[in-house]
Amino acid sequence: MKVEQISIFIENKSGRLAEVTGVLGKTGINIRALSLADTSDFGILRLIVDDSQKALKVLREQRFTVSITEVIGIEVPDSPGGLTSILQLLDQHNVNVEYMYAFAERVGNNAIIIFRFDNVDEAISALSSHGVKILPSERITSI
């Protein structure tokens, strides 16, 4: 259920993002989804890739500061209010969203959104018991 997300510390200077994606590209690692949180000095780049362990290894070799975080990918109805119903459900179960970002591609009629929760397991059980589809890790990395 859980997906390994790679987080990378990058300084806010030109060309840095390209170096990260360049390292991954050269090693044949494909980026599935990404989000960038930044301040004026530095940013945190979060990636879902097709081979997270390999990505972790090559990025560390290139002396990037990297960590792995567990996130989950959820199928959200691609219709008005689709996301709201899911967020309300999580709120009822006292699960907080730390951050979230969307996948570029759809699966069937659904959009895919990556979530980081403060309580991942509680989120999984709440969502599953209410029929929300959580995408298996291998599905996500192979989209």
Partner: peptide, 14 residues
Amino acid sequence: VNEHIFFDEMKQQR
């Protein structure tokens, strides 16, 4: 920055 003081969440990093 090293892995001891790198947080995935911006809130903690700041």
